[in-house]
Design a protein around this nucleic acid. Structure first.
Lengths: 346, 346
DNA sequence: CAATTTGTTGGGAGCGCTCCCAAAAAGCGG
DNA sequence: CCGCTTTTTGGGAGCGCTCCCAACAAATTG
């Protein structure tokens, strides 16, 4: 049985309240008493009981990370652990804890109801002070819920709403840079394999593609746009659909899809970058390992996580603060071989 | 302000206790009363306050996943998210929640002290009912701590101690299968790139290698053993050290290291599998994407997670149960191209 | 040196729940 | 219909903490 406040108090010859003041760093405690109390705490290994504290303060010092529907890509590339690391580091630094709500779509039958139930439990049950939401489709019902319940939250990914805080990478500009790079290399028939268009990142990267072409006065040929789902398989299939339209270059909205496209191209007897150039997005470790290494847009994943956590915590610590924060992090084009930059000599 | 038990009770015209009985499914409540109470609960959206409940029951229904020191490999391949999915699914199914404690070694200076502090807070603060520990080195101080504090826990990875429950894949047999496969293909100078030898998986896979050779009566040449760290870089370096000793085949204890080895070999002008055969361990998605696709030992990662969670929860629900569980899951050899099976026609 | 201010301490109440016990209601056999 | 058992219900106490207020001690002032 671990010691309680009261027991520590008795051992230190003071009252409950004084010990409480000591551990909460309240200034009005005589230094020698403070010292004595700390000593007893050290000796007994006392730790305040989290539940008791939460009950009294109505705070849990726990934040949640919610991944509403587990997009497959979460489990095939290391985006997720890196994001998590960013979040976890910040939590550690601020003495918050991190609770994870993952909803894989295993139990398909009633996954929706199920998820709602859990949501209720976790959030209404006041398990959490606030949440970070990642990889949610734009129309996920969780957002209205969170707003209504007045749960402080931050989205990883863009979401336009007057009261919603988010952190995102600049998908539009990143995609534009990628396509501009291809344009600069002389390509004009540039195709794109998009992400899922119900997700913001999918939409934004397509928008960047459109902007880059528009800036050069090149009309968008809808035949050169194939929707994928960020996965390798999706990329493979999309590339197949693109092939008949004979693009000279492809911008894939994720590295995984680029890897898929690479397969399709290889099977079709086309060489990258000689016959067709390829640029993608994400810069996951795999990007530099495939042959040819991918030219791709790097996003600061870990920073995305840490910024989101930092923002959420500041929201929690300053509840009166009403400003809505929308943070956009820059991306960077990493030039490797798949774009053919060397072959064509920039 | 969310409603409390007492408020629900008033609305339903019963007492606090009765509502408590209803939500805890205690049998002795008149059906019509039970019905009426549920109705009020539904209408008000009542959810019991987690902290209050924990305080009274001394249970939190939260389990922790602790990754004591963030091995880099966690962030470069998707092992971790898949394990997490296994754990999360089981938690969801049993109405437990999952708290994550990740310790990246960022803040190197006092990472140890820091980690202890957090450990204290989380565990002594009774935030958790039990924990799953993964990717901890054998000598991690967390194990004695957990035992002393009487925290129920399960390790992912083998750990021989009379009171410790663990779940592991059969690394020894898996590695032996891999090496036996190479032996069957006619190789005799088989090298190995091991994992870190302070981790159980590293040790066990090396042991499997030794056993396979021993069974054939082939003496182990220590020059053919190079220690790696499960990472691509480590594999690259280890292969470099192995090269002068002219193995005809290599067993790498992880796919990532195999990928690294592949690079070294390519740079050295050696072809895989024609000049040198390669077999590895893990079967991460990357394994099938590199050229040549890797022959590798598949481990049931998700099942590892779900089994560990299942075991932990059963420990929590049956605290009187004293049996120590040691669960070993089987592995499977996935034959692709890097072993040269086709070239040499088995 | 009394009066006031400031600093320090202890104890009561309460956070929202569960558990226990006793009281009330219902069921039952003779 | 009465005394008995069994089921159902309500209320007190307590889980371990924080917050507030009152009491007291110490320091400051006219």
């Amino acid at each position: 049985m671990p010691p309680t406040l009261e027991e520590v108090a008795k051992l230190a010859g003071v009252s409950r309240s004084t010990v409480s003041r000591v551990i909460n760093e309240h200034p009005n405690v005589r230094p020698e008493v403070r010292q004595r109390v700390w000593e007893v705490i050290r000796q007994t290994g006392y730790q305040p009981h989290a539940a008791a504290r939460s009950l009294a303060t109505r705070r849990t010092w726990v934040i949640g990370l919610i991944i509403p529907q587990a997009v497959t890509t979460l489990f095939t590339d290391p985006y997720f652990p890196i994001l998590l690391r960013g979040i976890a580091d910040v939590c550690n630094a601020h003495n918050y804890h991190l609770m994870l709500s993952l909803f894989s779509q295993r139990r398909v039958q009633n996954s929706r109801a199920y998820q709602d139930l859990l949501y209720q439990q976790v959030l209404r049950g006041r398990h959490l002070d606030g949440v970070v939401v990642s990889s949610a489709p734009l129309d996920d019902p969780i957002f209205p819920c969170l707003l209504e319940d007045n749960v402080p939250f931050v989205i990883v990914g863009r979401y336009l709403h007057e009261r919603i805080n988010y952190v995102d990478v600049d998908n539009v500009v990143g995609a534009r840079m990628a396509v501009e790079h291809l344009l600069r290399l002389g390509h004009e028939r540039i195709a794109t394999i998009t992400g899922p268009l119900n997700m913001c990142a999918g939409q934004d990267r397509l928008e960047g593609y459109r902007q880059a072409l528009a800036a050069r006065g090149i009309p968008v040929d809808e035949n050169l746009i194939a929707e994928g789902d960020f996965s390798e398989q999706g990329g493979r299939a999309a590339m197949q659909r693109l092939l008949p339209h004979r693009p000279t270059a492809v911008f894939a909205a994720s590295d995984m899809m680029a890897v898929g496209a690479l397969k399709t191209l290889r099977d079709a007897g086309l060489r990258v970058p000689d016959d067709i150039a390829l640029v993608s997005f994400d810069d996951i470790p795999l990007a530099s390992m495939v042959d040819p290494p991918l030219t791709t847009v790097r996003q600061p994943i870990e920073q995305l996580g840490s910024t989101a956590a930092e923002l959420l915590i500041s929201l929690l610590e300053n509840p009166q603060e009403e400003t809505v924060h929308r943070i956009v992090l820059p991306t960077e084009l990493v030039i490797r071989a798949s774009c053919g930059v060397r072959a064509r000599s920039l």
